[in-house]
Simulated scan of single mutants.
Amino acid sequence: MEDEILLTKEGYDKLVAEHEELVSVRRAEVAERIKEAISYGDISENSEYDSAKNEQAELEEKILKIENMLRKGKIIDDSDLTGEHVNLGLTVKVLDVETNEEMEYTIVGSTEADPFEGKISNESLVGKSLLGKAVGDVVEIQAEVGVLEYKVLEIRK
């Protein structure tokens, strides 16, 4: 599939739930706001109407984006993941060799990345560098702040 979007099962389920919410709940709310704004009379100078129409356009754009992601999405089959090597859908614990700090990352597709939750993209500098590595491997990552050196301590589902 061209331009496929890699997703974990969890990420796919979140997209489906968000799509359902936007289509079944938010669309109706925005339509109601538009209907209410129209009831105020002349829509040519009606800021509530303009605001609701803008919200509707943004909502429809978001729905289309999610539908495209679901259409192009490929769910990572975690039954194929042995945990011997870092791969999408797996969590990896690394040791920063310089600072002796341990960090844990879950490698996910770019659409699911959330660094604040420890989810990093397979396309990010760190994620890309860790892919395919095994426990005990040391990875040197050329970053803007200099060379980062991480040792893979653990890989798990």
Results as ranks from 00 to 15, higher is better:
68 N>C: 09
86 V>C: 05
61 E>R: 14
19 H>Y: 13
21 E>S: 11
3 D>V: 11
52 A>H: 01
108 V>H: 06
116 F>M: 15
2 E>I: 14
112 E>D: 06
91 T>C: 02
2 E>N: 14
48 E>G: 06
42 D>S: 06
69 M>T: 13
50 D>K: 15
125 L>N: 07
47 S>D: 15
154 E>H: 10
46 N>R: 04
105 Y>H: 04
60 E>S: 09
102 E>A: 07
69 M>S: 14
40 Y>D: 12
128 K>L: 11
115 P>E: 15
157 K>N: 09
26 R>N: 06
6 L>G: 08
125 L>W: 01
32 E>S: 14
2 E>S: 13
94 V>M: 02
80 D>A: 10
119 K>V: 07
26 R>V: 14
72 K>R: 14
150 Y>H: 02
18 E>L: 08
106 T>V: 05
72 K>A: 09
136 G>T: 00
19 H>Q: 12
49 Y>K: 01
63 I>W: 01
1 M>P: 12
108 V>C: 05
89 G>E: 07
85 H>L: 12
71 R>E: 14
58 E>F: 13
7 L>W: 00
32 E>M: 09
155 I>C: 03
17 A>N: 12
144 E>Q: 11
91 T>V: 10
114 D>V: 09
101 E>Y: 11
101 E>T: 13
96 D>A: 05
53 K>T: 14
59 L>A: 07
121 S>L: 08
155 I>K: 03
110 S>F: 12
33 R>Y: 11
63 I>D: 05
92 V>T: 02
20 E>H: 09
29 E>K: 09
114 D>R: 13
30 V>I: 15
127 G>N: 06
121 S>N: 08
128 K>W: 05
94 V>W: 01
65 K>Y: 11
77 D>M: 02
31 A>I: 11
